[in-house]
Amino acid sequence: MPPDISVRQLVKHYVVPERAGGLRASFRSVLRRKHRLVRAVDGISFEVERGEVVGFLGPNGAGKTTALKVLSGLLHPTDGQVDVLGYTPWDRRAEYLSRITLIMGQRQQLFWDLPAADSFLVNKAVFGIDDAVYKRTVDLLTELLDLGDLLTKPVRQLSLGERMKVELAAGLLHTPRVLFLDEPTIGLDVTMQQRIREFVTAYNAETGATVLLTSHYMADVKALARRVIVIDQGKLLYDGALAGLVQRYAPHKTITVHLERSVDLPDLNGQAEVLSVEGLQVTVRAGKDDAPEVTGRLLTQLPIADLSVEDPPLEEVIDQVFRGDGP
């Protein structure tokens, strides 16, 4: 089976007029506009198989939204090939648009003054969904998202999180096969973020839909995506298992030892740094390459009750990747 999403050497550049400061400069720029090229997406390639959930990571301005817009047909790329479900997205064929969805956490499509159910009926007509299928879908979404009576209250009366839930439902009424989710949890409180995550997992399991999602909450990524694609400044930095990202980019390991009794610490040869000493528990940090040697020395020179070696938290790893001083 061919992959659901196939992206080859995708490039999207924006041409933006230079904003000149000062009145005189503004006048001049009206007469002779200066332009600047923003390389939002600069040659990325990847594939996503049917049913995969892939996290699309990168700092602000990395080009995630731009890439999702190209994939969903909103933007023409500057260069490169994209194939989603056998379609070229920016042809915006009706059959294509009926099979995908793009849900943007910061942009709402529901009528503000009406209950979501009324907006749903509009989408039902627009997508030409027949009654039985529509009812089944709404029931499924109501169950998975725990919508309860949210659909009958005017959208403006809903909390941010409740609104996101009904927005998600609105974007899924036509049971798309491929979901592009751009920051679906942005601005939500922790519990609601978790609800949304659980929903995506359940929805993926239930429908087998392919999901490509961006988020800058690490918790989202950890919970949802076994595979991540990391981009920065429009370039692909990493594509693979989440665990591999840590292996590859974590610059150091954290070694925690429990001592049997209180003793002086041995000389660590500058290979490790003591992070904390709390009673009999000592935590040190060592470079990835030095970690085995440091561990060995600790084991031979200290009365050790217990020892563990851990990777640093994912947040730190990602930070490291984005600072660009990883390997």
Binding site: S72, G73, L97, R107, Q109, V126, F127
Partner: peptide
């Protein structure tokens, strides 16, 4: 920016 949702419809 919500005009995008118009372009996403199969109409």
């Amino acid at each position: 920016g919500t005009f995008d949702y118009v372009l996403l419809k199969p109409v």
